[in-house]
Nucleic acid binder design. Structure first.
Lengths: 141, 141
DNA sequence: ACAAAAATAATAATGAGTGCTATTATTATT
DNA sequence: AATAATAATAGCACTCATTATTATTTTTGT
């Protein structure tokens, strides 16, 4: 059993820092493309691939979280602590519902009924956000 | 306000029936591709586009449900009644947790904290299924 | 400054899903 | 049963989010 994969030494990168700062500085739960557009003015040489690569890196190490795919785009969350979300089915806007607790007590119960080991609990609500409810036809997220 | 879009008269189709039967006959929460592969032997002329089109049709009219994207593939559920799921983070297998109730009472509470109207509640657990836990490296879903 | 290695830019490639159109199947009507 | 109207499909082109590739640039230790 040779060639134990050793993770390469992490080097510092200004763009990587900026990407993390960007995701952490908003609650809109952005896509890679959104982060790219935000940083483009300050980093004209930034490449979309770099945004994708670093977002995945941060997600893998738990620095940020992924909400999964909403309307065809993977959405990220600068707050990696599990919490409840509300997703608009029409425009894809995501809101935090920080006031509600996740039903973590159900995790142990659920494990009795499935074959496997439960690690995470995801609770989210969906419907229409106020703007979409009031017939706003312009995209706003 | 003319040209009220009138939905075209629905005609019967053997393939459409087979697609619905296929999704309803399993609990693996299949992807379009899986349904296509299942039906191919019995319907050699079946087109993947037809599977996509009809799955979307059934989802829109509420005959089936979508679990969203798991590992890059949209997964469907022949049981349109909301219920709890367990998703394996490694292989993407989905199990029902029919014994647990959805915390629907939280829907009203959540609506106090967000701006919008909540319609649905989604609760799912994730982790490693038993096969993936025991180091099974072959795909099994 | 120099060398080694990690990070990036630019671009090609991938692949799930959708759109398009000629053909086929279904249904109602003779 | 033939006909006509139209819905559904097959086959394939296309879109577009994401990943892979590679030559170049940046970082970091010496």
């Amino acid at each position: 059993m040779e060639n134990q994969q050793m993770s390469p030494m992490r080097k510092h990168s200004k763009k990587r820092d900026a990407i993390l700062r960007c995701v952490r500085s908003t609650t809109i739960h952005p896509s890679a493309e959104w982060v790219y557009q935000q940083l483009k003015p300050d980093y004209p040489q930034l490449s979309l691939g770099t945004v994708y690569r670093n977002l995945n890196l941060f997600r893998e190490e738990g620095a940020i979280a992924s909400l999964g795919v909403v309307g065809g785009l993977e959405r990220f969350d600068g707050n990696p602590n599990p919490h409840v979300h509300f997703v608009c089915l029409r425009c894809g806007a995501v809101q935090d519902v920080g006031e509600l607790q996740l039903p973590v007590e159900l995790m142990q119960q659920a494990e009795h009924y499935i074959s496997g080991e439960i690690e995470q609990c995801t609770l989210s609500f969906s419907g229409l956000c106020s703007q979409c409810k009031s017939g706003d036809s312009s995209p706003h997220c």
